[in-house]
């Protein structure tokens, strides 16, 4: 049986896994953004707690994905919920760190000018700091997404489905076709999302902040 035959025969299963994979990634990135952008902004206003919080998030990042899924499996059980919790945890750090550094590195002359001309703290944040930091924040979202697409392949191990399921079946039965059917789409997915968010990054960079190419 050739690979093409395999794909056309198992078309539905592959598509289902792909959709589930996208669901896992999409949901956890969305929750990750909702948590880490406000948290990152909060940390720029409370620099004293920023160090410990970022260090904690960094430590979570060093915990291998397999271990985190293991924890989730033991503590919560199988299914999509534990997978999404774990993936969300991984999504937080890059976005959090980039939100924090992006806003912290906004040149002091801009914030001083905005205060001096009578902007409130909220106006300074939304009209000046966030627009200037936006490219950095989106880079964080891009990094998170690539991570999550990768770790989501492990979600199959705890019964959450996704493309990892196919790879996993392939690995445990030495079936190359299953491996390819899972690995290739997941790689392409990561690649496409990376490119798309990179494009978004460029579009959302205010024209005045784009580096002039001479």
């Amino acid at each position: 049986m050739s690979f093409i035959e395999f794909v056309s025969k198992n078309y539905n299963e592959i598509l289902k896994s792909l959709v589930r994979h996208i669901e896992l990634v999409g949901i956890s990135i969305l929750i990750g953004i909702l948590i880490s952008i406000p948290l990152g902004i909060f940390l720029t206003r409370h620099k004293r707690v920023a160090g410990p919080v970022l260090a904690l998030a960094g430590t979570i990042q060093t915990i291998p994905g397999l271990v985190m899924l293991g924890f989730a499996l033991v503590l919560i059980g199988i299914g999509m919920l534990p997978a999404i919790i774990v993936l969300t945890l991984y999504a937080i750090l890059p976005i959090l760190r980039n939100t924090y550094t992006g806003i912290t590195e906004v040149d002091k002359s801009y914030t001083e000018a905005s205060r001096g001309i009578g902007m409130t703290n909220m106006q300074t944040l939304f009209k000046v700091e966030i627009p200037i930091a936006l490219p950095t924040i989106i880079t964080g979202i891009r990094l998170s997404t690539v991570y999550i697409v990768s770790w989501a392949t492990l979600a199959g191990l705890i019964g959450a489905g996704g493309l990892g399921d196919l790879i996993w079946t392939g690995l445990s039965t030495y079936n190359t076709k299953y491996i390819l059917a899972g690995a290739v789409p997941s790689a392409i997915l990561a690649f496409i999302l990376n490119g798309l968010i990179g494009l978004l990054e460029r579009i959302l960079t205010p024209r005045g902040l784009r580096r002039s190419r001479i």
């Binding site: 002359s109 000018a113 001096g116 001309i117 009578g118 009209k127 000046v128 205010p206 902040l209």
Partner: peptide, 15 residues
Amino acid sequence: RTIGYVIQQIGLFPN
């Protein structure tokens, strides 16, 4: 808002 303010670093918002 009722006092104009100009600084050395100019501080025009780049966005």
